Amino acid sequence: MSRVWFSGALETVATFWRVARRDGVALGFTTHDADLWFDGLVHRAMPGMLPSAIRRSADLEPDSAEVEGALSHESISQADLAAGRFDGARVAIGVVDWQTLERHVLYRGAIGQVEEQDGKFSAELVSRKAELQRDPIPRTSPTCRAEFCGPGCGLSAARFTIEARVSAADLFANTVTIDGSIATDTLQSGYLRWIDGPLTGLTVEIAAVAGNQLTLAMPLDQAIPAGSRVFLREGCDRTVATCASRFANAENFRGEPFLPGNDLIARYPSPSA
């Protein structure tokens, strides 16, 4: 039998919320005055953190929630918020009995926009119901719609990912130089994931390649120590020619390269010479 929360005059109930960041870091917090361990995660005491409003509906309209609090815990820093480490993180908010650890999740969603002002932050939470508003029907396109090494592609990311070291980084040019001899020409439109250094866990797209020098799509705002390790994953230009010749994967191509486009409407016959 499920518990009826707040049915008594005095309840041993606290609020908890969990954050699962895209870089693999999981954080747990509670409004209780002591740390709580449940669901395989320590929920740190953070009495200043509270959900200011949670709205749930029985229809398909997205639920809404907001979380506000002071930046008082070392797990949440202004630098991480500014670097986007919490953008798109999955969030669960609920109530927990701090004596029996019986718990119930009230809200599930993801972090949208994060704002910081006067030492406090507010996070806009996007309900999982928002996924129902996404059109699941794919549109025709001459290039592949599948993510490289993702669902629909069929290729293993491990085959096209290598570990390397950064020998130098230029913050002004937004470039990093890779140590050693690797086939950098295949990294165009690929991804770099930091293993060491101040940006550990973050993934950034490779915008351009010139020899062993990689230009990143996101600006470097922190000094990168020489020798920092990274994962480099190859890129794909999503054309059927590349899919067939380079990856031998044309059977999984998710596009219509030979379908006439809108320019067919503007064509007109011309007299023969």
Score class of each variant (00 low, 15 high):
Thr31Ile: 06
Ser57Ile: 02
Asp63Ser: 15
Ala70Leu: 12
Leu60Phe: 15
Val91Ala: 07
Ser72Val: 04
Met49Arg: 06
Val67Leu: 13
Val95Asn: 10
Ile76Gly: 04
Val42Arg: 09
Ala45Ile: 01
Pro47His: 04
Glu74Val: 11
Asp59Tyr: 07
Ser75Thr: 00
Ile93Phe: 02
Ser57Asn: 14
Asp39Cys: 07
Pro51Asn: 15
Pro47Asp: 07
Ser75Gln: 15
Ala53Pro: 04
Val91Thr: 01
Ala89Pro: 11
Thr100Tyr: 03
Asp80Gln: 12
His73Trp: 00
Ile93His: 01
Arg55Gln: 08
Asp33Glu: 14
Val95Phe: 10
Arg56Glu: 11
Val96Trp: 05
Ser72Leu: 15
Trp37Thr: 02
Gly48Val: 05
Trp98Glu: 06
Asp87Asn: 12
Glu61His: 09
Glu68Phe: 13
Ile93Tyr: 04
Gly28Asn: 04
Arg90Ile: 04
Ile54Asp: 01
Ala65Phe: 01
Arg44Gln: 11
His43Gly: 01
Met49Pro: 05
Trp37Glu: 05
Ala92Gln: 15
Ala83Arg: 14
Gly84Met: 05
Glu68Met: 15
Ala34Gly: 06
Gly94Met: 05
Pro62Asn: 10
Pro51Ile: 03
Gly84Leu: 04
Ile76Asn: 03
His32Thr: 00
Gly84Ser: 10
Gly88Glu: 10
Ala53Ser: 11
Ala82Arg: 14
Thr30Ala: 12
Ala65Tyr: 04
Pro51His: 11
Ser75Pro: 09
Pro62Gly: 07
Gly48Arg: 08
Val67His: 10
Ile76Cys: 03
Thr100Arg: 14
Asp97Ser: 11
Ala89Met: 06
Gly94Pro: 02
Ser52Phe: 08
Phe86His: 08
Thr30Met: 09
Asp87Thr: 10
Asp33Met: 13
Leu101Arg: 06
Asp59Ile: 03
Glu68Tyr: 06
Ser72Asn: 13
Ser77Tyr: 09
Ala79Ser: 13
Val67Pro: 02
Arg85Cys: 12
Pro47Tyr: 08
Ala70Lys: 09
Leu81Gln: 00
Pro51Phe: 07
Asp33Tyr: 10
Ser77Lys: 07
Ala53Tyr: 03
Leu50Ser: 11
Asp59Phe: 08
Ala89His: 03
Ala34Val: 05
Ser64Asp: 07
Met46Trp: 13
Asp80Pro: 00
Glu61Met: 10
Ala83Pro: 05
Thr100Asp: 07
Gln78Phe: 12
Asp97Pro: 02
Asp87Ile: 05
Ala79Phe: 05
Arg85Pro: 06
Gly48Lys: 07
Ser52Thr: 15
Gly69Ser: 12
Phe38Cys: 03
Gly88Val: 02
Leu60Trp: 12
Ala89Lys: 00
Val67Thr: 10
Met46Thr: 05
Asp80Leu: 08
Ile93Val: 15
Gly88Lys: 06
Ala53Arg: 13
Gly84Thr: 01
His32Phe: 12
Gly84Val: 00
Phe86Asp: 00
Asp33Asn: 13
Glu68Pro: 03
Thr100Met: 09
Ala65Trp: 01
Gly84Lys: 06
Ser77His: 06
Pro51Gly: 08
Ala92Arg: 15
Pro47Arg: 08
Asp63Val: 01
Val95Ser: 04
Ser64Asn: 05
Leu101Asn: 01
Phe86Asn: 04
